[in-house]
Amino acid sequence: MVRRAGRALCVLFLVALATMSLPLLLPGSAAVAVLGTNVSAAELAAFTSMHHLDANPLERLWMWVTGVLHGDLGTSIVSGASVAGELQARLPITVELVVLSQLLAILLAIPVALRAAWRPGSLLDRLSAGLSFVLLSIPGFVLGLALIFLFAVQLRILPATGWVGFAQDPVGHVQHLILPVLTLSLGEAAVYLRALRANAGEILVENYIHAARSRGMAPGRILRTRVLRSASLPLVTIVGINIGASFGGALIVETLFAIPGIGRLLSSSIAVRDYPVIESLAIIAALAVVVATVAVDLSYRIIDPRISHAANN
């Protein structure tokens, strides 16, 4: 556990150092975004120096860490807003979007994959294989636009874009969530479905499954208690990886549906080289991935105790 924590800290340090090197590595200038193009090169250099964008990465990392220890994540160069304030407002939105879409994807994938594996070649098996292939082939923004066209423009039963806070209007909140969550989750569900279907198919031919069947155990119970547990190890790995990748997917969905999450904040900050915002967001995203990876590793031991025994021996 200590070794694992040490490795995680090393990863975070390297990501932070790489992020702090961005002002020196990336072409483009934050100064141009703020001061415009009608300025001299000397004025741009003065602006860059004033915001420590020309400092070495270690120095910048030190400034960032000392700031964090004082509860200060820095200030946006462009808007002058506090990065902590921006994160406080936007992070919960992205987290809600990502968590709900992952949950929906898992809830859609598990029953279909297990039932399809139970009867290989059945209509459900063929339909789910075809549908997952289609969903994997459609880029997220195309799927999102198609959903907007159908549900907002044609049927007019859901809003096309925007965001409403739960406290402000619970019903409106749910209505605004449906299309973005569907857009994010349908592609993920297709990945989970294919992975789980393949694993479940292999497990269903194992001797202990035949034994359970011969003892007269109901198919539903076999699938839930025998097949799902064994087949979900690869699924958990994919979900863990996807939580990190979902922030990338959220960027597209947040832009398409005009949701004020951190994906959009990161995208607009990169466009104008707003480094204080980029740095904090990148480090937090890395932290999320590291935590998710550790959580996945730990969950292996719960799902399959043999892993824990092997590690102890």
Binding site: F141, G144, L145, I148, F149, A152, V153, R156, P159, A160, T161, G162, T255, L256, F257, A258, P260, R264, S268
Partner: peptide, 19 residues
């Protein structure tokens, strides 16, 4: 004033009545 950065969904928002 709503921020609708995507060109296509901004137009869809207009057609659907959201803007």
């Amino acid at each position: 004033f709503k921020s609708l950065p995507d060109t296509d969904s901004r137009y869809q928002s207009l057609v659907s009545g959201a803007a």
